[in-house]
Design a protein around this nucleic acid. Structure first.
Lengths: 115, 115
DNA sequence: CTTTCGTTCAACCATTTAGTTGAATTACTC
DNA sequence: GAGTAATTCAACTAAATGGTTGAACGAAAG
């Protein structure tokens, strides 16, 4: 459910997930401390446990964290994989951009005077 | 610890801006065709001109496009600059991540017995 | 058997967001 | 002067989002 559908939808999910500061902070905590229980993650914030639980679900749906359930304890761990999707998109964008500029340069080269 | 105050807000604005598929498409059009009028951009979508105008404002607030107003015609052009902020954040995150894994490796090295 | 623990689920509420339609603006053209 | 063009602004609606509180669940501990 993580990749395999390199669709725009997945990219949207990933970007939406990290566009929330709380979720970015959550991700930071996770890469700092490794697999962590939901309750322990929630301790770092002044919002309810439920709010944190929901944020984790969003990150999970975006494939940015995985969950290892050991009965009532759910260990959450980060997965940086999906970030590649973001990188790829921006790289594509930049490539189109520079390509266009190069083409423009060539035109200006052959046609020195213009209005 | 996480250094959240200064440009976290900017990062949020940028990520929120590109998390919308319509706005990503808008950006793609812009890097493909260069400076374009609002009306011409709107032609590519099946939503109202006003909707597109609002999307552009969001992109503008995030610094992802600039606007050159030549009387009633507003020329919109992309600015890839802010994308660096995104890159930087993810790079930071990954750096923390690999650093932690390295530290973990060292521990496992000296302590062959696992718990 | 009752309590505790870690977590999700369900039902709400407030705010934000993406969309709409209908002005208002203001130079140029008829 | 009236009409047109390109855009924003204002007001509104519907849906999504982030937050809350109050269950419920089911193993473990007392």
């Amino acid at each position: 459910m993580v990749e395999r559908k390199p669709d725009d939808q997945m990219l949207t999910a990933i970007l939406k997930a990290v566009s929330d500061p709380r979720r970015r902070e959550l991700l930071t905590l996770l890469v700092q401390h490794g697999p962590t229980r939901v309750t322990d993650l929630a301790r770092h914030f002044d919002v309810s446990l439920n709010a944190v639980s929901k944020h984790i679900k969003v990150l999970e749906a975006a494939g940015l964290v995985r969950r290892r359930t050991e009965w009532r304890e759910h260990l959450i761990e980060p997965d940086m994989g999906p970030v590649r999707e973001i990188d790829r998109w921006f790289q594509d964008l930049r490539s189109i951009w520079t390509q266009r500029l190069d083409a423009l340069d060539k035109i200006l080269e052959t046609e020195p005077d213009d209005e």
